[in-house]
C-alpha cells in the first residue's frame, strides 16, 4: 500500500506516519524535514523566520581575531544544547564541553572556574537561534557590527552569522563566531 514504511529490523510494513516500528519499536528510516508550526497566538503577529537575517550553521573557534576552526555545529532543529563544563559527580555533561578552556580562579575565599558547569544554552525557537546565559560565569555576546555586551543569567540574544560569543573571564576565555 502507498506510503507504508518497511522496518529495516523486522521487515514489517508500518502505517504511513509511523516513526517507530509497531512490532519491534526500532526507529524507522523516514524522510525528515522541518515543517511550519501552526501558531495560535493572541499576541502581535508572528514574524516568519525567513524574514530575519541569516541563521548560522556552525560556530568557529576564534584565535587572534580570526576564525581558525569549525568547532561545533549549531542545532538544526528545536533541540537546543548546553554549553559548559563537565562534572560527572553531578551528572553534568554539556553538549558543547568547554572543560579544556575552564581555568580555576579565586572568588573571595572560594575557588571557582571561569566557565560554569551550565554556562549557556543555544536554543532554536520559531526558526531562530538564541544564546541564553544560564550559569553564574560571565557570558559575553557581540552581535555583528555592535560592541560586546554581557548576557546576564536568563537573558538571551538572537544569534546570526557574524555574532560572536565569549565564555570565561579575563584569566582565560574562549571566543566563538557564528559562520
Amino acid at each position: 500500500m502507498a506510503g507504508e514504511i518497511k522496518c529495516n529490523n523486522c521487515g514489517l510494513d508500518n502505517k504511513p506516519g509511523a516513526i517507530l516500528c509497531e512490532v519491534c519499536s526500532e526507529p524507522l528510516e523516514v524522510t525528515v524535514g522541518a515543517s511550519v508550526p501552526i501558531i495560535a497566538s493572541s499576541s502581535a503577529a508572528h514574524t516568519p523566520a525567513s524574514a530575519v537575517g541569516i541563521i548560522g550553521r556552525a560556530c568557529g573557534l576564534v584565535v587572534g581575531g580570526n576564525v581558525i576552526d569549525r568547532e561545533f555545529e549549531l542545532p538544526k532543529d528545536d533541540f537546543g544544547f548546553t554549553i559548559g563544563r563537565t562534572d560527572l559527580d553531578q551528572g553534568i555533561i554539556p553538549d558543547v564541553d568547554l572543560t579544556k578552556f575552564a581555568e580555576k580562579v579565586k572568588i573571595g575565599q572560594d575557588v571557582g572556574y571561569t566557565v560554569s558547569r551550565k554556562q549557556a544554552i543555544i536554543i532554536r525557537r520559531m526558526g531562530r537561534l538564541y544564546l541564553r546565559a544560564i550559569g553564574g560565569a560571565k557570558t559575553m555576546i557581540k552581535p555583528q557590527n555592535t560592541d560586546w555586551k554581557e548576557l546576564l543569567k536568563d537573558q538571551e540574544e538572537e544569534i546570526l552569522v557574524g555574532s560572536r560569543f565569549r565564555f570565561g573571564g579575563s584569566e582565560g576565555y574562549v571566543i566563538f563566531e557564528v559562520v
Binding site: M1, A2, G3, N14, K15, P16, G17, A18, I19, S35, P37, I38, I39, A40, S41, S42, S43, R125, M126
Partner: peptide
C-alpha cells in the same frame, strides 16, 4: 499565551490506517 502545533506529517498518502503524531507547545507571551 502562545500556542504552537506541529504535525508529524501534514500531508499523508491515502490509506486505511495512519499514525498521526503531533506536538503541542505552550509558551509564555
Amino acid at each position: 499565551m502562545q500556542v504552537e502545533l506541529t504535525l508529524g506529517q501534514r500531508y499523508l498518502p491515502i490509506t486505511d490506517e495512519a499514525e498521526v503524531i503531533f506536538l503541542l507547545r505552550l509558551l509564555r507571551d
